[in-house]
Every structure is written in structure tokens, then in C-alpha cells.
């Protein structure tokens, strides 16, 4: 029972921060609400026996990535955007479609008896960094290497995109 209360409490915060992020006008506030949301999800990860992923979530996502976001928002002065839009039906239709997506998904999940199963046993050492590290270098060595290449591509891509082509002087 206590478990359930904690879940609903955290879920409420997660949904509230997500909604706030979408609704608030100021981009800086949006980013901060997203950070909150990411932290709440990290707490869920801890509850679900995934301390390593929770740490990565906090460090990489809530930490580095969102700082980058905030930095760019500040740099561009893009807290608010002006200008009218010609898309009159966009927001109501998008809202309706989003509601339909959520409603449909919930309906399907409720029809899934397998999903109602109690938590399986995840032996404690499985979620810890050592086990994950071992897996990363055996079964998941290929995705691991691919990810490193992806990071490299992103890095070079950023350099290419950010370099001011007008002042290259080639």
C-alpha cells in the first residue's frame, strides 16, 4: 500500500512537471521543469532496482544535457519567441490526438494481463555498475562501440555546423 502511495505521488509530480514544461511560456522555466521531471524519473529508476541507470540519468541527462540546453537558450536569448502563427487548428487537434494516443495506450495496457504481474525478482547485484560494465563488454559490446562512434560523429558534426564558414578564409 505504501508502495502504491509513493508511486502515485511521484507519478503526480512527473506528470505535473511534464505538463508545466509544455505549458510554461518561458523556455528557461521549461528547461528547469524538464530537469525536475528527469530527476523524478531517476528516482523511479532507483525504486526499480536500477541505480546505475539512475546515476547516468542524473549525471548525463539532468546534468550535462540540460545544462547545455540552458546555456544555448541563454546564449541565443530565446526565452520567448514572438510572431503569430497561421496554424489555427494545430493546438486543438494536437491536443485531441495526444489524448487519443494516451487513451488508446491505456486501454490497451489495461487489457494486458501479463502487465499486471507482480515485480519479478531482479537479483540485487544485477543492476549494479560492475554487472552492467561486464555486460557492456560482452553481450553488448557492439552497441557499446556503435554508441562511441555516434558520439564521435556528433562531435565532428557539431564542429562542422558551428564553424563560421564566412570567416574560414580557405
Amino acid at each position: 500500500m505504501g508502495e502504491l502511495i509513493v508511486f502515485y505521488l511521484l507519478a503526480g509530480i512527473a506528470i505535473a512537471t511534464a505538463l508545466a514544461m509544455v505549458i510554461t511560456r518561458n523556455a528557461v522555466h521549461s528547461a528547469l521543469f524538464l530537469v525536475l521531471n528527469l530527476v523524478v524519473v531517476a528516482v523511479f529508476y532507483l525504486l526499480l532496482g536500477a541505480p546505475f541507470v539512475a546515476m547516468v540519468q542524473i549525471a548525463v541527462y539532468a546534468g550535462a544535457v540540460m545544462v547545455l540546453f540552458l546555456f544555448v537558450i541563454m546564449m541565443l536569448g530565446a526565452e520567448r519567441v514572438g510572431g503569430a502563427t497561421g496554424l489555427r487548428w494545430q493546438a486543438p487537434l494536437a491536443g485531441a490526438m495526444g489524448a487519443a494516443l494516451i487513451g488508446g495506450a491505456l486501454f490497451a495496457f489495461l487489457q494486458t494481463p501479463a502487465g499486471l504481474a507482480p515485480a519479478g525478482s531482479l537479483p540485487a547485484p544485477l543492476g549494479d555498475p560492475a554487472t552492467i560494465g561486464e555486460r557492456l563488454l560482452t553481450t553488448y559490446v557492439l552497441p557499446f562501440e556503435i554508441t562511441s562512434i555516434l558520439l564521435l560523429i556528433a562531435m565532428v558534426g557539431v564542429v562542422v555546423l558551428a564553424r563560421d564558414s564566412r570567416s574560414e578564409g580557405k
Binding site: F7, L101, I102, A105, F109, A114, A119
Partner: peptide, 14 residues
Amino acid sequence: LTHYLALSAILFGI
């Protein structure tokens, strides 16, 4: 699990 999936679907939809 359904609880978690429902929450994730709601966040996804938002």
C-alpha cells in the same frame, strides 16, 4: 507493470 507503462504513455503523450 501496467502502472509504469501507463505513466510512461502519459509522459510520452504529453
